[in-house]
Design a binder for these strands. Structure first.
Lengths: 241, 241
DNA sequence: GCAAAAGTGTTTAGCTTACACCCATGT
DNA sequence: ACATGGGTGTAAGCTAAACACTTTTGC
């Protein structure tokens, strides 16, 4: 009965956001059509969540306080174990990366991915890719990252029903229409705007009014809300289908 | 940026069952009122789930095929990481342990718990203790095992709503009354027997009739059911309150 | 017969759904 | 004026809670 004392613990991230009404995930392109989820080893002075938050900061520059991060599951066969985290970032913040990415200062986006194959010193490029495309082709992602992404997306889809997770896709202040478009993108389904409005504004402490309203957009101005202080929705929303 | 290559990966178990209409968890008594959850290191030739199932077999003699085991979460600060699993066993199978335990052949119940403190060669004694007592006194369990137990119980309580997990508390064949008593014990709430009966028998593929009925008990004989082949209940049950 | 548990029927209240309708802005 | 999205009202249909009632056993 030999105890394994040589385990390597890494973290990987499923980073989700909504861009142009589409659910997208952050993936690294390591050349030759090789896609992986961002991640890396846990350092000596970190706990698991801290390592996940550091990786996320390296990639997006987002402070942990502004991002929803939760543990997903742990995968792999010792001595190689990876703890996967789900991160949800606002679409507005995510667009910054895509922009600067195109502007050729993507060299900040470095990943110390601990790889079996021959990892060279090339910094992989980070990109937002649609989740449905990634999930519909099982070989798009290397290792077991397809499964991890699937688990992360599944978690997000479920948690929209009974938790205020959808607000993590939105900026600090958002309209009920913004929130509805998040639900529609994540669930990949159409929702009746009128019933959705009544539903979420009737769910206790889900949303708090800021008093401000939007301006300059097409249509009637909408009230702006901030996320309320609950981690459980009562009553919960129901996914159609 | 030093990579930690000396991590120790262990598994721990939240083992739940229902005895005498009460939700109980399996804990090890290590003397001096020191209670811990069962667990131990992952061996060289095991994956994580395999290690959890082996620990469970060591404690209860239950084959993995007869027990529901699912991953809960991963805790701890590297280089010491523990992957917690939730196990649900039928009350009937669980009573065997408690019985043989009292009959003084508990020496089978050995655990290789990897401990910081001075672990001697005394085999800890395993016992079923009520979950509400364990959870209401935060210092009853050592390390972070109180938190792990809480997470496991919370997971079980949630999954009763939308999954057939409750059948894992029951023997192969059970009545709807048996199932209701599981729900009542786990949720610690009273349920209307008539509405519960209609609800579960109307949930598609939750239960399949065996054709057999109970005999020799007080009251009208009840139909015996086996668990159906679904992992999602439609529609889901709702917890009162 | 009586107690106990299984199982069915019925009523009522609440909730969801679909959609008619009005509101307030940009163009 | 008209398009666009925000927001409210309402009726039909479905679901769940409460409980009266019948069934079938053990004692």
């Amino acid at each position: 009965m030999v105890v394994d004392r040589n385990a390597t613990v890494a973290v990987h991230l499923v980073v989700l956001t909504v861009l142009d009404d589409e659910l997208v995930a952050l993936v690294l392109i390591e050349g030759r059509n090789r896609l992986v989820l961002p991640g890396g080893p846990v350092l000596d002075d970190e706990d698991l969540l801290g390592a996940a938050e550091r990786e996320l900061w390296d990639l997006t520059g987002l402070e942990a306080s502004r991002v929803h991060v939760e543990q997903l599951a742990t995968y792999g066969l010792p001595p190689r174990v990876t703890v996967a985290y789900l991160a949800v970032v606002p679409g507005a913040a995510a667009e910054l990366i895509t922009d600067t990415d195109g502007a050729a200062d993507a060299d900040d986006v470095v990943d110390e991915y601990d790889d079996d194959g021959g990892a060279d010193d090339e910094a992989p490029e980070a990109e937002w890719l649609p989740v449905d495309e990634l999930l519909s082709s099982p070989d798009s992602l290397a290792f077991d990252h397809h499964r991890i992404l699937g688990d992360g997306v599944e978690r997000a889809r479920c948690k929209l029903e009974y938790s205020p997770l959808a607000t993590a896709f939105c900026p600090d202040e958002f309209t009920i229409g913004d929130l509805r478009r998040v639900y529609q993108a994540v669930w990949d389904t159409a929702l009746d705007p009128r019933n959705f409005h009544r539903k979420v504004s009737g769910t206790a402490d889900f949303l708090v009014e800021t008093g401000r309203i939007t301006a300059g957009e097409s249509g009637r101005p909408a009230r702006l809300y901030r996320r309320g202080d609950v981690d459980r929705l009562h009553p919960s929303l129901q996914r159609p289908g």
